[in-house]
Amino acid sequence: MEVRTIKVFTTVDNINLHTQVVDMSMTYGQQFGPTYLDGADVTKIKPHNSHEGKTFYVLPNDDTLRVEAFEYYHTTDPSFLGRYMSALNHTKKWKYPQVNGLTSIKWADNNCYLATALLTLQQIELKFNPPALQDAYYRARAGEAANFCALILAYCNKTVGELGDVRETMSYLFQHANLDSCKRVLNVVCKTCGQQQTTLKGVEAVMYMGTLSYEQFKKGVQIPCTCGKQATKYLVQQESPFVMMSAPPAQYELKHGTFTCASEYTGNYQCGHYKHITSKETLYCIDGALLTKSSEYKGPITDVFYKENSYTTTIK
């Protein structure tokens, strides 16, 4: 009895394709271990004539594949690729409408935090270190965002349907971005203890939790000093293409032309909904596939993004 075979390709990165001759009487799992086709788990399936010449994702289970996976995804987590594939199996079914010149995501599976993050990423200057993220990001900007969303979920250790947080998501993504040249110098002034300067680099240099107003941050924000008295913390120097200011959701007025974009969060910790506000020729609110415009805006804002380049204080 002759062994019926077909020729397929296996890959971990969709760049390096490895030619395989597979036995049609055995499952993919018996031949390769966990195997995925377009995100779908085909591990328990036997090869079919229609699979001839198709590319299958496999887990990096030998040295060659491990090197290829690390170079593309910059992670050695053995569960990463499987999590990416199972997320992709959902995100490829989502709709990605162009809204006001940006790629958004039609609401499904509690994905409003991903839509808000995706919209924000198209408006701030950011370059990702893992080629996987950078490639998928370019495709997302062009309207094909399924891979990018699935990668975000995998890097953030999230599953489809789980509630997510924009600030946490951005923080994970910033860790995989090139923020080497970003720098922030802060000064804390206390009447009792004097003053202390701190220099922050990388992710810490672009994120701040405690106030939404970048102007206020430049002037000074009140913080408790270690001595128990009130101290003032203010920005001395900022070198970065953008800054992200966050605070627990509270009524906040966004003035046209003073910011790049913002995240609105309605609801409580267990259950809520994100919308995205962007400042173009007027203010726009993007909620999944829905767009509304207004000249002014007041609502429960939790993150505001500002364009920056270089700032030095005039406070002496």
Rank of each mutant, 00 (worst) to 15 (best):
K255P: 06
Q216K: 10
L283W: 06
T192V: 10
V206D: 00
Y57A: 08
S213A: 07
M207K: 06
T258W: 00
R167N: 02
T19F: 11
G299N: 06
Y36E: 02
L37H: 13
A262E: 00
K158L: 06
N129H: 10
C285Y: 01
T55D: 04
A289R: 04
L65S: 11
Q20Y: 10
K280P: 00
T64S: 11
S240Y: 01
C271I: 10
M26Q: 15
H48W: 14
E264L: 12
H273W: 02
L119R: 01
F9S: 14
L118G: 03
G202V: 05
G143N: 04
D135P: 00
E239I: 13
T55K: 11
V22S: 08
L283H: 03
K106G: 09
L151E: 05
V160H: 07
Q237V: 08
Y84V: 06
N14P: 13
G161I: 01
V203L: 10
V8Y: 02
P97L: 12
L65F: 06
A247G: 04
E264H: 05
L81F: 10
K92V: 07
G164L: 00
G194D: 01
V203K: 12
T192A: 13
D62N: 13
L235P: 03
A145C: 06
E296F: 14
Q134P: 02
N187W: 05
S25V: 11
V8W: 07
I223M: 09
E204K: 14
V42E: 04
H51T: 03
C225L: 04
L81V: 13
T169Y: 01
E215N: 06
Y84Q: 04
E52C: 11
T169Q: 04
Y36D: 04
V188D: 04
V58C: 10
Y57G: 03
T278E: 06
C227Q: 05
V42K: 04
P131H: 04
T199N: 06
Y208A: 03
C285A: 11
Y311T: 13
K316S: 15
K218M: 02
A142H: 14
A69H: 14
Q251N: 14
S25A: 13
A154Y: 02
T314R: 15
D180M: 10
L121E: 04
H273M: 04
T199L: 07
K275A: 15
T10K: 12
E264D: 08
T211M: 05
K201V: 12
N309A: 14
P241N: 08
F174L: 09
T75R: 11
H51S: 03
F128I: 00
F148N: 01
V189D: 14
Q175K: 12
Y252T: 09
G257S: 06
K255W: 05
C271A: 08
G267C: 14
I6P: 07
L283M: 12
K201P: 00
V160A: 08
A150P: 05
Q238D: 06
Q98D: 04
N14S: 12
K218G: 02
Y284F: 10
T198R: 11
K106F: 10
V42W: 14
S86H: 11
Q238W: 02
V206N: 05
A262P: 00
Y113P: 02
T278V: 10
I286P: 05
T302P: 04
D77C: 11
T11K: 00
K307F: 08
L291F: 15
T64A: 10
Y28M: 11
H74I: 07
Q122S: 02
T11Q: 12
G143T: 03
I6V: 12
A150R: 02
R139V: 06
L291W: 15
D38G: 10
R184Q: 06
S50M: 12
G272Q: 03
H74R: 06
R66I: 12
T211V: 08
I124T: 07
N89F: 14
S25D: 14
K46P: 09
G39L: 07
P130T: 06
I6R: 10
Y297G: 02
D109F: 02
P97T: 07
Q238I: 01
P131V: 02
V22L: 12
T192K: 07
N61R: 12
Y265A: 00
Q270H: 08
T312W: 08
T260N: 00
Y57H: 14
W94A: 06
G53D: 10
Y57R: 03
P78H: 08
Y306Q: 00
H74Q: 11
T169W: 03
A108H: 09
L153D: 02
K298L: 12
V160G: 06
K127Q: 15
N110E: 03
Q222K: 14
G29F: 10
T314P: 09
L121V: 11
N178R: 07
N178L: 05
V160T: 05
N268G: 14
G101I: 06
T91S: 07
F32R: 12
K93N: 10
R66Q: 11
I301R: 05
Y297D: 03
P78S: 13
A247S: 14
I124W: 04
E71M: 01
R141N: 09
V58S: 09
V185M: 04
T198C: 08
K54P: 05
K54E: 14
Y172S: 10
T64P: 11
S295A: 13
F9R: 10
Y234H: 03
Y172V: 14
C182R: 09
V160D: 01
T192F: 07
H256Y: 14
L121N: 02
Y73N: 04
L121W: 04
G143V: 02
M26F: 14
H18G: 08
Y138V: 14
K218Y: 01
S181Q: 15
E253N: 08
R139H: 10
S295V: 07
N147R: 09
Y113Q: 03
L65V: 11
Y252V: 10
L81T: 07
Y306A: 02
Y155H: 07
K307H: 11
T266C: 06
L283T: 08
I301S: 00
G164K: 09
T75D: 07
I15S: 14
C225N: 00
A231N: 02
K183E: 07
P60F: 15
P300K: 06
Y274T: 01
S104Q: 12
S50T: 11
G194C: 07
G29W: 12
C190H: 00
P131G: 03
D77L: 05
S50C: 12
K233H: 07
S104K: 01
L17N: 11
Q216L: 07
K44W: 13
K219M: 09
F305R: 00
Q196R: 13
S86E: 11
F56C: 11
A177D: 00
D135N: 06
A142K: 14
S86A: 15
K54G: 11
T232I: 13
L254F: 08
G257Q: 04
S263F: 03
E144H: 09
Q237E: 09
T43I: 07
M244Y: 04
Q98P: 08
T120A: 14
I277E: 03
S25T: 14
F70A: 14
I105Y: 06
I6A: 12
D287A: 03
N89V: 13
V203D: 04
G101A: 07
G33Q: 02
S240E: 01
Y113E: 04
E162T: 00
Y72E: 04
Q122A: 03
L119D: 09
T198N: 08
P130E: 06
A250R: 10
K298E: 14
H276Y: 03
V189K: 13
D165G: 13
T226K: 14
N16W: 09
K255T: 08
G33M: 04
Q196V: 09
S86K: 12
S79K: 02
A108I: 07
E253M: 06
G53K: 12
S240A: 02
T27H: 09
Y252R: 00
Y274F: 14
Q230R: 10
L102H: 14
D303L: 08
N157V: 05
V99Y: 11
V99N: 09
E68P: 06
T312I: 13
H18I: 10
D303P: 03
W107G: 01
V42T: 07
V67P: 06
N178C: 09
I6H: 07
